[in-house]
């Protein structure tokens, strides 16, 4: 477990100081699927009031990072804290936008029904969606420019519109920290611009947004901070400025061949059947 620390001093140097005010504080988190480690010994403290991109190659564990933070996949080890307390106690502060492809869009619900799901935790068990909560859901739809589509069945929406509905559902959660799994995947230019505007507004209101992001070109335009991930944290820090970690060198480490040794070790462990 200590091998990668000695072999990559940059990850230590770029690691922010642990802070109790951090919206997301991850310590020693390891996650494995079928005994194969997907995330290895992750330490990360997200800066408050910022837009953070999680960047890394396919299979680097970006989605798994989000799911593990939200308790959706079991952790082999480690802890996750939201604003200084365990996730279970802070659920009300967390909003979530899953990958668009993760659900069946032919499901018999309207756009408004989906957005209203963002209010369910506030509504509580057994109660129907009240008029006030419906109004809040409609307001969230209006914020993403989809008010006219409230009563459409969701399979009649384009991919970009479906993504906006998911974003509206997260807005309806009225959270302080948002986790978004590829919110820009497969959307049209207008939707991309609309999402960026909303992300900036959320940050300006004092919230924090963590996005899995694929397009390296737009990282400096859209985000303040970046978390370079490939099974472990390669680097984390500001996107620009003197302390920028969004450098050619770090990207090469994230995407390039320097991590093959770790990868081989992981595969060898899976083969040997060593449980983590």
């Amino acid at each position: 477990m200590t091998v990668h620390r000695t072999s990559s001093p940059t990850s230590l140097a770029s690691r922010p100081e642990h802070s109790p005010d951090s919206p997301l504080s991850v310590h020693d988190m390891t996650v494995a699927y079928h005994r194969r480690p997907v995330l290895w010994d992750i330490d990360y403290d997200a800066p408050d009031r910022s837009l953070i991109a999680i960047v890394g190659p396919n299979g680097a564990g970006k989605s798994t990072f989000i799911k593990a933070c939200l308790g959706l996949v079991p952790k082999a080890s480690g802890t996750v804290e939201i604003y200084g307390r365990p996730y279970r106690e802070q659920r009300r502060l967390v909003g979530y936008v899953p990958q668009r492809e993760s659900v069946d869009w032919d499901f018999p619900v309207s756009a408004l029904d989906v957005v209203a799901m963002g209010r369910y935790a506030k509504i509580g068990w057994f109660r129907p969606v009240s008029r006030a909560h419906k109004a809040a859901a409609l307001d969230a739809l209006a914020q993403v420019g989809m008010a006219d589509f409230a009563h459409r069945q969701i399979n009649q929406l384009s991919g970009g519109q479906q993504q906006r509905v998911f974003l509206a559902r997260a807005l309806a959660q009225e959270a302080k920290i948002y986790f978004m799994d590829e919110p820009f995947a497969g959307v049209d230019a207008a939707t991309e611009a609309a999402i960026v505007a909303i992300l900036r507004r959320l940050r300006d209101e004092g919230r924090t947004v963590i996005c899995v992001h694929h397009d390296l070109q737009t990282v400096p335009d859209y985000f303040d901070h970046v978390l370079l991930l490939n099974t472990r944290v390669v680097a984390a820090g500001p996107v620009s400025g003197p302390n920028s970690v969004f450098t050619r060198d770090n990207l090469q480490k994230t995407y390039g061949g320097r991590l093959t040794l770790l990868e081989e070790a992981a595969q060898a462990m899976a083969k040997a059947g060593t449980s983590l």
Partner: peptide
């Protein structure tokens, strides 16, 4: 039924 991950994330 629609999105079990989201349901789990909001604590159901």
């Amino acid at each position: 039924c629609f999105d079990d991950r989201f349901a789990a994330a909001i604590g159901l």
